[in-house]
Simulated scan of single mutants.
Amino acid sequence: MISIYIVTKNEERNIERALKSVEGMGEVVVVDSGSTDKTLEIASKLNAKVSFHEWLGMAQQKEHAKNLCTNDWVLNLDADEELSPELKSEILEVIQRSDISGANIPIEEYFLGYPIHQITKKNSHVRLFKKALGSYGNERFHETPTVEGKIIDLKGGIRHYGETSIDVKVSKINLYSSGKAIDKFEKGKRSSILKLITIMPLAFIKSYFIKRNLLNGKRGFIGSMINAFYAFLKEAKLYEAELKSRSKK
């Protein structure tokens, strides 16, 4: 069997879709950090094990939720995501194997209400792993568990519906870039003028051409521009952190 864990806060628009996509798979653990909408009511009606945990950071929240799971295999899903039917079947086969520790799963992005082109290169993340072999670090955002042992790549995808508007996507990159910059600064990384100059055009080329977002028309161009700006913001805010550190001395 498998445990699915989801961290939430005010996700009444999304949580039902996520939970219905994992029906029949096993235990579902929902850890909430203070929803004021119907998130918990919906989750409880769909037989999830619901609990509260004060928000201390994404990695810490997911580590706490993972530790509440009681099965050997665990799957992390965000509230604004769902499993594709293909992935669901694939996971149920994978967890019968004893020769692997986890799996990379491609993320099928929906941007402005539409899915990306099927041959656009997708980002993949370790979302499925044996509980005893995986743990999270202290990253503020875009946290990925460290898993001991063999990791395989799955073909089925997780559908992500979170980027419903340009406003949402820009707000997200502003928030995430701040956390990523602080993480980098605390690890001793420093900014450079060369990277500040080159990171945005290079990130655009990677997103638009190499990852084939050009196949997504205007949405692909807009998304790639925002992705490039996100890369720039991380470097700019790293420099900002350096300036703040100097001013305190």
Rank of each mutant, 00 (worst) to 15 (best):
V22N: 02
F229V: 12
F52K: 13
E81Y: 00
K130I: 08
L233E: 05
S178D: 10
E93K: 13
Y136N: 10
E86R: 14
Y110F: 13
K45D: 14
S247H: 08
K45Q: 13
I158D: 03
G26R: 00
W55L: 09
I15M: 08
S178Y: 01
H125V: 12
V168Q: 12
Y176G: 03
V50C: 15
M25T: 02
A43M: 09
K187H: 10
A79W: 01
S101R: 06
L243H: 06
G113E: 14
S33K: 10
R13N: 15
L40T: 06
A103Q: 03
G149S: 11
V50L: 07
L56P: 05
E86M: 12
F52G: 09
L92I: 06
T164M: 12
G26L: 07
A103T: 05
I173Q: 08
E11A: 10
K155M: 11
Y230M: 09
F209Y: 12
S135K: 12
T164I: 13
K20L: 14
V147L: 05
A203F: 01
I107C: 06
Q118M: 08
E81C: 09
Y239E: 09
R13D: 15
E81S: 06
S89Y: 01
F209A: 15
K218Y: 05
T164G: 10
D183H: 04
K237C: 09
S165E: 06
G179R: 02
I158F: 00
N14T: 11
R97C: 06
K169R: 15
S44M: 11
L92M: 14
F185Y: 15
N138F: 04
F185G: 08
D37E: 03
L83C: 03
I199H: 02
L243D: 06
S98M: 11
G26H: 01
L40P: 02
Y208M: 11
S33T: 04
L202R: 01
G57F: 00
E143Y: 00
Q60F: 07
H53Y: 11
N104K: 12
V22L: 04
F141S: 15
L133I: 03
L19A: 07
L128W: 01
R13L: 15
K234W: 05
D80P: 00
L75I: 04
Y161K: 03
I15D: 02
T164W: 04
L194K: 13
I205F: 09
I222S: 02
S191L: 06
N47G: 05
D183S: 10
K88N: 07
N227S: 15
V22G: 02
H142T: 07
L92V: 04
N10R: 06
E93S: 14
